[in-house]
Design a protein around this nucleic acid. Structure first.
Lengths: 130, 130
DNA sequence: GAATATCTACGAAAATATTCGTAATAAAAT
DNA sequence: ATTTTATTACGAATATTTTCGTAGATATTC
């Protein structure tokens, strides 16, 4: 990926990216099998999507004999970060704070997870305190 | 809105909703003026979008003389909550925790805001502690 | 009161995203 | 070696979202 901040995978592409992030390298068949666990989807549909993603350089591929092995070209965290920024802008008018408040208030978060978040806040406060 | 969990405003619709949430009631002209502050957009484009939103029952309208006065039919927090849930699923595979960590780690959040978040966490821990 | 401006309604074009059918090719099985 | 199976390439149909042109109605201005 050259143009790093212009990433905008569609929802379907994101589904495929998640599978590739999990599997590392995968054939269209493997990805399609994974997708099929959740919903009906034709093999050529998945193939086409992955070809488009290849055109867009968000996945790379190598030929292994007769197959193509696909691999994500953009990192999971990096992508989440970018999508998060856009989502915050679109839905929370740029206020990450409000997003966090809503997420903590209403989404499922466990006690252990809250502890981790507290640690992160403590560190962040230390840095901001400078 | 009858079918509350099937809300899925598009990005353009969300932009308009933000304006309506802010203004309360507004004419197409007012909304279009607001939109135009950010980007080029034709009046009839905005009109059409708002008509579609009316068809979908995500806004209501009353006739005031020659104008129509539009008003959001879905609440801001409620909508954000729904979109947040979908976003967490699509982008963070359902882990609100990871979203919060990333948001705190990389988005802009001030010291004061961190304090507020800490308060929220404290309360939530009290409840979860039961 | 004629011209101008400002609305709404509506259809359809344009842009984007998703789905799939068909053909070509290569491998595997019989 | 012929048939069956699995793969890629490609075009096109379908669906969704966004944009806008045109027409008709009603007010406003000169």
């Amino acid at each position: 990926m050259e143009n790093i901040s212009s990433i905008k995978p569609t929802e379907s592409e994101l589904e495929i990216l998640h599978i590739l992030w999990q599997l590392g390298k995968a054939t269209v068949r493997q990805v399609n099998d994974e997708l099929s666990k959740n919903r009906e989807v034709g093999y050529t549909t998945t193939l086409k999507l992955m070809q488009i993603m290849h055109d867009k350089h968000i996945v790379s591929r190598t030929e292994e004999g007769r197959y193509h092995l696909y691999q994500a070209e953009i990192g999971e965290e990096q992508t989440q970060q970018l999508l998060l920024g856009k989502f915050v802008d679109a839905t929370f008018r740029g206020s990450a704070m409000r997003l966090v408040m809503q997420a903590l208030g209403n989404q499922e978060v466990s006690l252990d997870e809250l502890e981790e978040i507290k640690k992160l806040i403590a560190e962040k406060e230390k840095n901001l305190g400078n």
